[in-house]
């Protein structure tokens, strides 16, 4: 198990390096010379060429791209994601400060999304081609097609503007949580729901399900004890994809609802041209992304012993 975990972790290193390279390469895109930009902010006036030269030497900006990237990676691996131009604080500290607010909406939204996906997905698969199945497909299509910011504003228009029962935005009591959590959950549940349905349908066609039915077990037992358990293995494997949805959803939901979390912070930083934060955020998300994928891999092994016993374990999707 530990050997497997280490192997999977090593397999994720190239992905992480790729994301960090992307983040680092961004700095070559920023208009203007970074040295002049940073120094200009520090001095509050345009720096002289001599000052720029000195600054480049001091910060290593005069070194080749590869050397600079190497140092960027080494720093990032030690938790140094750079310093925000705006606040002069380490980017990682700023992100960590805002993380609880993000979790406050993400965790309930994740649970709600899972519950909805399982409930509707199972119902649609068990009663195939029934009304609930058709409704689930309509819901999945809408989930794929309606942008989450549009959904968020529709919910606000209904519940806050028209009915006046929920606050429009901001962080506060429980009532402030309802709309952001609902938006985030609905935004991420569609693909998971579709997957639950299709993998349960697959499993329902397996021999052992037929055997269980032939033995006279009640349908409820067949589904809950045998079919669903196996279908869930497939569902768990896409939890990594679900995370991708969450990250995107969080940035949008926090912007719509003025929620003081990580996503809002990044959007604000973009408008302040705080490039260090943009870069740090990409590396930060990349790291969380890699860790979640690792966790999913390990969970998958626990759920499906065939992976552990079989020769190759990394057959998950990509």
């Amino acid at each position: 198990m530990i050997g497997y975990a280490v192997r999977r972790l090593l397999g994720l290193v190239p992905t992480w390096l790729g994301i960090s390279l992307f983040a680092f390469a961004l700095s070559t895109l920023s208009p203007g010379d970074p040295a002049e930009l940073i120094l200009g902010r520090e001095l509050d006036r345009p720096p002289t060429p001599a000052q720029v030269e000195e600054f480049r030497k001091r910060t290593g900006l005069d070194q080749p791209f590869v050397v600079q990237y190497g140092r960027f990676v080494a720093n990032a691996a030690q938790g140094d994601l750079g310093t925000s131009f705006r606040s002069d604080e380490p980017v990682l500290d700023e992100l960590v400060d805002r993380f609880p607010a993000t979790l406050e909406i993400s965790i309930p939204a994740f649970l709600l999304a899972m519950a909805l996906a399982l409930l509707i997905g199972v119902l649609a698969a068990v009663r195939r081609n029934s009304l609930s199945d058709h409704l689930s497909r309509v819901a999945a299509l809408l989930g794929d097609s309606v942008p989450s910011f549009v959904l968020a504003y529709l919910l606000i228009i209904v519940f806050s503007v028209t009915l006046g029962v929920l606050p429009v935005a901001g962080r506060g009591g429980l009532d402030h949580l309802v709309l952001p959590v609902l938006t985030l959950a609905l935004a991420t549940t569609a693909s998971l729901m579709r997957l639950t349905r299709s993998s349960l349908l697959d499993v329902l066609g397996e021999d052992y399900v037929r055997t269980a039915r032939a033995m006279g077990l009640p349908e409820r037992t067949v589904i809950a004890r045998y079919a669903l358990k196996n279908a869930l293995v497939a569902v768990v494997t896409v939890a990594g994809l679900l995370f991708a949805g969450f990250i995107t959803g969080i940035v949008i939901v926090e912007t719509v609802f003025a929620w003081p979390g990580v996503g809002r912070y990044v959007v604000d930083s973009i408008f302040d041209r705080d490039y260090a934060v943009i870069r740090g955020f990409v590396v930060f998300t990349g790291t969380v992304f890699v860790l979640i994928n690792l966790a999913v891999d390990l969970l998958y092994v626990r759920l499906d012993p065939r992976v552990r016993l079989g020769a190759k374990g990394g057959s998950r999707g990509r």
Partner: peptide, 24 residues
């Protein structure tokens, strides 16, 4: 394939935001 895997694995809106946020 390395480039493709990295870009497809990561949430694309974040990458769009990062690029447009940097370029303006």
């Amino acid at each position: 394939m390395w480039v493709v895997d990295v870009l497809l694995a990561f949430p694309s809106l974040i990458l769009y935001l990062a690029i447009v946020g940097t370029l303006g």
